[in-house]
C-alpha cells in the first residue's frame, strides 16, 4: 500500500520530466540543442507565480475546467498500476470507470472552451469531441480483448505483476497490434503531432492548445500538469506492455519501467 502511494507520488512528480524528454528528442532531430530537460518544471513554477486575465464573457465554468481536469487525472492515476506494482485502488470494472473519468475531464475542458464564446475555441472543442469518439471505440476494443484474455476488467489485472508477460505468452501477435493501437491512441488523446501540434501558433490547426488559449497563470499550470499526467497515464500502459518483466526489487522495477532499457 505504502509503495503504491509512493509510486503514485512518483507519477505526479516525474510526469513533467517525461514530457520534457519529448522536447529534447524533437530538438535533437531538428538539429538544435533544445530546452533543458526540466523545462516543464520551470514552466509550471513560472505559471504559478503569475496572475491571471479572464475574458469578460466567462463564468465559473471556465475557472472550474482546469481544476476538474487535473482532479480527474489525479484520481485516474490511483487506479493505474505503475511499474508493475499493484495500484492504490482497484475494483472490478475500474478500467471503464477510469476511462469515463477522463471523459469527464474532456467534457469540462470543452465546456470551459465554449464558455469563452470564441469561435476558434469552438472549432477546437468540436475536434476534441470528434476524435475521441473513434479513440473510445478502439480503446474499448482493446478492453474487450484484455477481458477475453484475463477474465478481469481492472487495470491492475492487465498491467501489474507478471500479467503482461502472461498476455504476451497467450496472445503475442494480437498484443503487438494492441501496442501499436495504444500508441496511436496516445498520440490522439494527448494531442501530439500527426493529430495536433502542441507547438503550433495557428488557432485553426490546433485542438487542445486552442481550447486552453484563454487560460493563464495558475489555471494554465493546472491544465499543463493535467496534460503531462495524461501523457504519463497512456505511456505507462504501453511501457508496461512492451517491458513486461518483473525484477526482484520494486526499486529495480521502477528503474526498468522509467528507463525502458
Amino acid at each position: 500500500m505504502i509503495e503504491s502511494v509512493m509510486l503514485w507520488v512518483f507519477a505526479l512528480v516525474s510526469a513533467p520530466l517525461f514530457a520534457g524528454i519529448i522536447f529534447k528528442v524533437k530538438a535533437f532531430f531538428g538539429g538544435r540543442r533544445g530546452s533543458p530537460l526540466l523545462i516543464n518544471y520551470y514552466t509550471l513554477i513560472k505559471l504559478i507565480k503569475k496572475g491571471s486575465v479572464y475574458s469578460s464573457s466567462t463564468t465559473f465554468v471556465f475557472k472550474l475546467g482546469p481544476v476538474v481536469n487535473l482532479g480527474t487525472i489525479v484520481t485516474a492515476l490511483f487506479f493505474l498500476p505503475i511499474a508493475g506494482h499493484a495500484p492504490v485502488l482497484s475494483f472490478n470494472g475500474d478500467a471503464i470507470f477510469v476511462l469515463y473519468l477522463l471523459g469527464l475531464a474532456r467534457f469540462f475542458t470543452i465546456a470551459a472552451a465554449m464558455d469563452t464564446a470564441s469561435p476558434f475555441e469552438g472549432m477546437g472543442a468540436a475536434r476534441e469531441a470528434y476524435f475521441p469518439i473513434i479513440c473510445e471505440a478502439s480503446i474499448f476494443m482493446i478492453l474487450i480483448l484484455f477481458y477475453r484474455l484475463t477474465g478481469d476488467l481492472t487495470l491492475g489485472a492487465f498491467l501489474s505483476g507478471g500479467q503482461p508477460f502472461g498476455l504476451w505468452q497467450t496472445a503475442g501477435p494480437p498484443l503487438l497490434f494492441v501496442v501499436i493501437a495504444l500508441f496511436i491512441i496516445l498520440l490522439t488523446e494527448n494531442a501530439r503531432v500527426p493529430v495536433d501540434d502542441p507547438a503550433t501558433h495557428l488557432e485553426l490547426t490546433m485542438i487542445h492548445e486552442v481550447m486552453v488559449l484563454d487560460h493563464s497563470g495558475p489555471d494554465l499550470a493546472f491544465i499543463e500538469m493535467g496534460a503531462f499526467l495524461k501523457l504519463f497515464f497512456y505511456s505507462a500502459w504501453i511501457a508496461r506492455l512492451i517491458l513486461p518483466f518483473e525484477l526482484a526489487h520494486p526499486l529495480l522495477n521502477l528503474l526498468l519501467f522509467s528507463a525502458g532499457w
Binding site: I21, I22, V25, F29, S235, I242
Partner: peptide, 10 residues
C-alpha cells in the same frame, strides 16, 4: 517510459 516518450518524439 523513456522508450515510449522517445518514440513519440521521433
Amino acid at each position: 517510459m523513456v522508450i515510449v516518450v522517445v518514440t513519440v518524439g521521433i
